[in-house]
């Protein structure tokens, strides 16, 4: 099991390179939320409840960003077996899982007052829960497999499988009857809401990129430490 290039020592990332970007993302998100809340009038039907949209929708859409990264780097890992790709896919999977959990929680907080129920087993909600469970399984799997090569291959397989669920989640509201509404578009949403949605989509995208990047840096540093120990042990044995 040495075909993961364990011999090439991983380089730990330089310290604190992404912090500035992180602060920017967080401050941008605060500004985007305040702007969206202040400039938008209460909705005709749901009044102030509409304001949950500025968190629920951007977070939900950016889970897809995460799982797209998982798909991309899982495929590349299976192809080229670079350990960095595995670590990046795993980082995106962790961020994506947390954001999917948050999406579900925000959806429930919206569903109770708007629909009248916290939860309903309609295709959109069910497929989102399945997506969450698959990636929770992905993260659990990584805890249980110690060998890096094996861990990489197995999690890449689950990661690709899980990412294939994303189009199902997205299209569920069109393929099947759901309680959840179909996608809105600028033609079904008044301009006073569209600006806030766009701002928050951008803000959450930036934050998502930052979180994945930061998680990746931590994973890389951790593996770099293990590599150092390994080479030291091997070198000691060979000498």
């Amino acid at each position: 099991m040495t075909s993961v290039n364990a011999q090439t020592t991983l380089q730990a990332p330089a310290q604190g390179r992404s912090t500035g970007f992180g602060w920017f993302a967080v401050l941008f998100l605060i500004a985007a939320q305040v702007t969206a809340i202040v400039i938008s009038p209460p909705d005709r039907d749901m009044g102030d409840l509409q304001k949950i949209m500025y968190v629920h929708f951007p977070v939900a859409l950016n889970t897809f960003t995460c799982f797209f990264v998982v798909l991309l780097f899982s495929v590349r890992f299976l192809w080229q077996r670079r350990e960095q790709d595995d670590l990046l896919a795993a980082s995106a999977a962790e961020v994506g899982t947390i954001m999917t959990g948050l999406t579900l929680a925000l959806g429930m907080l919206w569903g109770r007052p708007a629909w009248g129920v916290w939860w309903v087993w309609d295709p959109r909600l069910t497929s989102t829960l399945v997506l969450f469970l698959i990636f929770a399984g992905y993260l659990a799997l990584r805890e249980f497999v110690e060998d890096p090569e094996r861990r990489g291959v197995w999690s890449a397989a689950v990661g690709i499988l899980g990412a294939l669920n994303v189009p199902i989640v997205y299209m569920s509201v069109r393929w099947w009857r759901t309680l959840h509404q179909v996608q809105s578009s600028p033609s079904t949403v008044d301009p006073s809401y569209v600006i806030g949605i766009r701002l928050n989509l951008t803000a959450v995208l930036l934050l998502t990129i930052f979180l994945i990047w930061r998680r990746y840096e931590a994973a890389l540093t951790e593996r770099a430490a293990e590599h150092v120990l390994q080479t030291a042990a091997l070198g000691g044995a060979n000498a």
Partner: peptide
Amino acid sequence: AYVATWLVIIGYLLRLRALMARARESL
């Protein structure tokens, strides 16, 4: 909804900081 969002963000940022610190230590 907004409190939940920020709790998750801040909680995860703290986890990242702890992970990073531990990884640097082991390195």
